[in-house]
Design a protein around this nucleic acid. Structure first.
Length: 202
DNA sequence: ACGCCGATTCTC
DNA sequence: AGAATCGGCGTC
């Protein structure tokens, strides 16, 4: 099992390559009330300033500043004024590339995840959808810029490459610009993978 | 200063 | 199909 230095190197590549590295990785959040760990099953690549669908497309702002930093830090943003979504910053410093974490399977702390998501939520749905995934983990704006491979509450771990035959790709969800690029990646057959919805526009 | 559009999700 | 609701960006 590679150490954190190795994973940091694996993530210092273009977003669509880093996305494949992140599939199957686990992300843990150690909070005062307990630890939740998810295994990533669905991600989306965003290429940075060159990508019309990226938050970094129009350059650096206070919100997206973390994207312009080094790889293996978490970029958290507020979506629609009410949901937090998380990205792993990838590529080289200054590239603003990131991978949106869209879904994951809760492999540790299911009770705590359900306490955060709601008592009626089925196990496979605890981490389904980018905002639901962050809610299950207990991640919010306070974690924007948090290191993922250093001492701290958030830990990202690689467990070897996933079987390439299990990886599926398709258009990114909710994205109207650059909708032709198949930069959504997911593991086939995982119940936690969110149902595909095409962009409301186009 | 004003308005519209989101990398969403849940409910009607 | 609609609502909840905040930040960024274009426009007046």
């Amino acid at each position: 099992m590679p150490g954190s230095a190795d994973l940091g190197r694996l993530l210092a590549v273009p977003a669509e390559e880093a996305a494949l590295v992140l599939l199957g990785c686990t992300l843990s959040h150690r909070a005062p009330d307990g630890t939740v760990t998810v295994r990533l099953t669905e991600v989306e690549a965003y290429a940075g300033e060159a990508d019309p669908a990226s938050h970094a497309w129009r350059g650096r702002t206070p919100r997206n500043a973390v994207m312009f930093g080094p790889a293996a830090f978490l970029y958290v943003y507020l979506s629609y004024g009410m949901h937090f979504c998380g990205n792993v910053v990838v590529g080289t410093e200054g590239s603003a590339a990131a991978v949106l974490l869209r879904a994951g399977d809760v492999v540790e702390g299911e009770d705590l995840a359900r306490a955060r998501r709601g008592p009626a939520v089925r196990a496979h749905a605890l981490g389904r959808g980018p905002a639901n995934l962050m809610q299950a983990l207990g991640v919010d704006r306070s974690h924007d810029g948090a290191a993922l491979l250093a001492e701290g509450p958030l830990v990202l771990e690689h467990h070897g490459s996933v079987d390439p035959a299990r990886v599926r790709t398709g258009p990114r969800v909710g994205v109207s610009r650059a909708a032709d690029v198949p930069w959504r990646f997911w593991l086939d057959g995982e119940p936690s993978v969110s149902a595909y919805r095409r962009s409301p526009r186009a």
